[in-house]
Design a binder for these strands. Structure first.
Lengths: 235, 235
DNA sequence: TGTGGTCTGTGGTACAACCAGAGCCAGAAC
DNA sequence: GTTCTGGCTCTGGTTGTACCACAGACCACA
């Protein structure tokens, strides 16, 4: 008998998901005034803490605006939102990401990757190559696209961390969820092997301290993603 | 008699600031195990809610790692951190940002600004120009560098929002605090007028739908910031 | 030897109570 | 009639408290 794991979501998370879905789906419209915390608490049969904490989370994600002692309204989240909003939008099953959105994310990633490559080629050590090589091995051995995408992200983040730049790894970490989602879809469509090969080639150029080829390699496979393979994200 | 405003910071914020400063200053070292929540609560004479909530905030900022039912340890925040960490680091008075860090942030900004300019020149409307023009006016009328920097950020964010791209404004919003800090320092050194003129010129090119000149304008003043004016950030 | 029970201490969660401020309005002051 | 003061009510903000599940150590016993 195969037993599945049981997990009990917290009331707070349930509350956040309920309201967030209502906002993304359009059931709650931009500018609409939300019930007060006490009304939420009473009607949903939870304590005010759950509601207060949940509304604050929704504020962090850019979905609502809270005016102390006045109330909360649904925000224009493309305007007020941030990276967390993007993550939430990408995880929302119902939303269809357009070609243009995916293009933007990939262009940002291309830019970040080039910044990293420029810096790491100048200073890469044997220790760095050792760690990165092991990640490549793990990536190749990954069984599911999700697992492979996660390791690919770690590979990228490790590159950034070891590039010596302070800012870039912090920025990259913020884009974690959206980027993993995109690479997961990429692997599902084209197979893990393709992604591993791209990274392995980049690794080889970095090992040779060959900035020019490494840059060309990044530009090549990111442009390929951007220009040629966008149709898979249209679903 | 002139009365100054009184504001009472919450216990939670005080707690977060205390621990965060200890981590950034190096008083608490990476890998060091923190006291338990109950120990914190007892010794600092606050309730566990304050400590629990504060530790979670520190986790969000990438400064600690919480292992449920085991304890919390100080994280390698350049590795685990995100945009929030960057914001916290920049707001920490004691830290000296290196030329390289500032260069990274400005390069990211340059890239983002170019993405925005490309898109908005194709689709800018009279309504857009109206709103942007008003912001320019407010920027010129700003009395303090802080105020001017805030409006400059709004101008940039408004540009991104009206460019029609969904991702870029979300990304820009995430970089809000660091970018404002940098522009504030820029204004303090060179005066508000300089910044306003840069933005006004960009505005004019956008109004003319002149992508090439607008791009050149951005590259010009961002490179000037990056290459020439970095010494002001070394303090 | 190892299995399962129990106890202790941890962070996770939820609830209740109190706080300060915004808005409204009756009624005093003029 | 107008102004404005003081208090009342409702809001979100904050904090103290209670209970939960789980990790780990320990132990009794088969």
């Amino acid at each position: 008998m195969k037993l599945e794991q049981l997990t009990a979501p917290s009331l707070r998370d349930l509350f956040v998901k309920t309201i967030q879905d209502a906002i993304i789906s359009g059931e709650l419209k931009i500018g609409e005034v939300l019930p007060t915390e006490r009304e939420f608490a009473e009607q949903m049969n939870v304590s005010r803490s759950v509601v207060n904490s949940g509304l604050n989370e929704l504020k962090n994600r850019g979905f609502i605006e809270i005016k102390p002692r006045k109330g909360a309204v649904v925000a224009d989240y493309i305007y007020t939102g941030n990276i967390n909003t993007l993550t939430a939008l990408m995880e929302y099953r119902g939303i269809a990401f357009t070609k243009e959105s995916v293009r933007s994310i990939l262009e940002i990633r291309k830019f970040a990757e080039l910044m990293v490559v420029d810096r790491i080629c100048e200073r890469v050590t044997e220790d760095d190559l050792d760690v990165l090589g092991k990640l490549l091995g793990e990536m190749a051995a990954a069984k599911t696209p999700k697992e492979a995408a996660l390791i690919a992200f770690e590979f990228w983040h490790e590159l950034a961390y070891r590039s010596g730049d302070i800012i870039v790894p912090l920025g990259i970490q913020s884009f974690k969820a959206p980027v993993i989602t995109l690479w997961e879809r990429y692997c599902t469509k084209y197979g893990i092997h393709e992604m591993v090969e791209n990274n392995r080639q980049l690794y080889d150029y970095i090992a040779d301290r060959d900035v020019v080829s490494a840059r060309a390699c990044v530009i090549d496979y990111m442009d390929k993603s951007i220009e040629g393979d966008l149709e898979i994200y249209d679903t």
